[in-house]
Amino acid sequence: MLASCASRLPAPSSPPETSLPAPVVTPSAPLEADDNQPLPVPRVQGNSRWVPVRWSDLPGFKDDNLFEAWTAWVKSCERPGPVFAPLCAEVRQLSIATPEEQRQWLLRRLQPHRVESLDGQAEGLLTSYYEPVIPASRLPGKGYTVPLYRAPASLGQRRPWYTRQEIETQADAQAALRGREIAWIADPVEAMVLHIQGSGRLRITEPDGSQRMVRLAFAATNDQPYKSIGRWLLDQNLTRDATWPGIRQWISQNPQRSNELLWSNPRYVFFKEEALSGTDPSQGPRGAQGVELTPGRSIAVERQNIPYGTPVWLVSSGPTAQLQRLVLAQDTGSAIIGPVRADYFAGWGADAGELAGRLKQPLRLWVLWPR
């Protein structure tokens, strides 16, 4: 299965935070001390059930480098929800604390809850996504034949808009997009990757021959349903490997059927161009919460089950990765559905793409909620 995070929309602006007194970080009881305290009752959140547990139930909690996650949490505090906004002054102050001080604050201020389905299933699925880096040209030609578009002016006048196949074959759809090209790339499969991931970086050649890096961010879709091209291959019994490497191998062996495969996903994504800071190449794309994503510490979730900005303890063990770490729920995606379901933001570039293309393994989640 291929996860899609192409449905990223900015969250509404939060009201200004009120000033809070600076917290005093004091040592608290050892990790095991909470075993003597009564637990709250379970609660239903969307289509999930949150079951309170002891901190000692979180695998690997003592070993994580929390400093990396704190960076993502400070970013979430740029647009916090009403539950976490009162904690943000403390979160910011603790960004310069030691990992042990951060860990003790978590013990004191938050209660872990195991996330499970309403029928008690606590194991789900982890996949991954990333920001591709793709060579591009501002003008077509010299092998650059695949356009990437801004949203057409007529997008809101027809719902749903044309399918992917119609956009690439019908004269009226192409006329509506004429002049809306942002750039051109060479590979239609890379264009599909960009559409599925929802954002990407272009190493773009300008008409004068100069090159620069820009970001394409999600702007809109054609309102058609997302269909996994990996699932299409599996359903047709054409492959047993529906990872990106497996899909690319199948296309290389069946080039005459590449359009058939790509058109099986009718959803089409339109983009907007954003400048990338030359002094901060680590700047991530913005997720659905409206804050920059942090590689390895941001996840996409189904918002009704885990609200944006929630710190989450993530555990996943499989052939691709061994993960026990604190992450932040900062994004969503049209294929990210279910109570124990997450898409792990791997970052950008080839290594991130390799991880994102192969990661598909069991998942357990614990939300960390204010006491």
Rank of each mutant, 00 (worst) to 15 (best):
I134V: 06
I134E: 06
R164Q: 11
P16L: 09
A122K: 13
G209V: 04
L66M: 07
R371A: 01
A122N: 14
Q283A: 02
L2N: 09
S154F: 01
P281C: 04
E181R: 05
Q211I: 05
W366Y: 06
K272C: 08
Q361E: 00
V115F: 11
D208F: 06
R159W: 14
I229G: 11
E90S: 11
S334V: 14
P12I: 02
V269Q: 14
R8Y: 11
N237C: 08
M192H: 06
L314R: 10
Q93F: 10
L314A: 12
R297S: 02
K62Y: 00
F345I: 04
R215H: 04
T332S: 06
A173Q: 02
R257S: 09
D57K: 08
A11S: 06
S228K: 07
Y344T: 07
L155F: 07
F67A: 04
R286Q: 05
P370H: 08
S14H: 05
A356L: 05
A11Y: 04
A186P: 03
Q102I: 12
L359I: 14
A136T: 09
S316P: 12
A85D: 03
W366R: 06
V301C: 05
S228Y: 09
P225I: 09
T279S: 09
T243C: 13
P21L: 08
L194C: 07
V74F: 11
N222W: 02
Y268S: 07
V269F: 00
L234S: 01
V146G: 10
G296S: 01
I337N: 00
T127Q: 02
G338Q: 08
D35Y: 12
G198H: 09
T71P: 04
Q93G: 12
Y149L: 00
R92T: 07
E166Q: 15
W73G: 07
Q170P: 10
P370W: 07
C88G: 13
L365Q: 02
A151R: 13
D172W: 13
T294Q: 14
V91A: 04
L363K: 01
Y149S: 11
P21E: 15
K272M: 14
A219F: 13
R231A: 11
N47R: 08
D119G: 05
A85Y: 07
A321M: 15
D64V: 00
L125Q: 00
L234A: 02
R92Q: 03
L66R: 00
Q37Y: 13
Q37F: 10
M1N: 15
Q157S: 13
E292M: 07
E32L: 08
G179T: 09
P362H: 12
R267A: 04
L368H: 07
L261Y: 01
R43G: 11
N265V: 07
G120A: 02
Q289V: 08
L363W: 01
A89D: 13
P12A: 07
V269L: 14
P370K: 02
V41E: 13
V51R: 13
L125P: 03
K142Y: 08
T221G: 03
Q330A: 06
T18V: 15
G290Y: 03
K272H: 12
S199N: 04
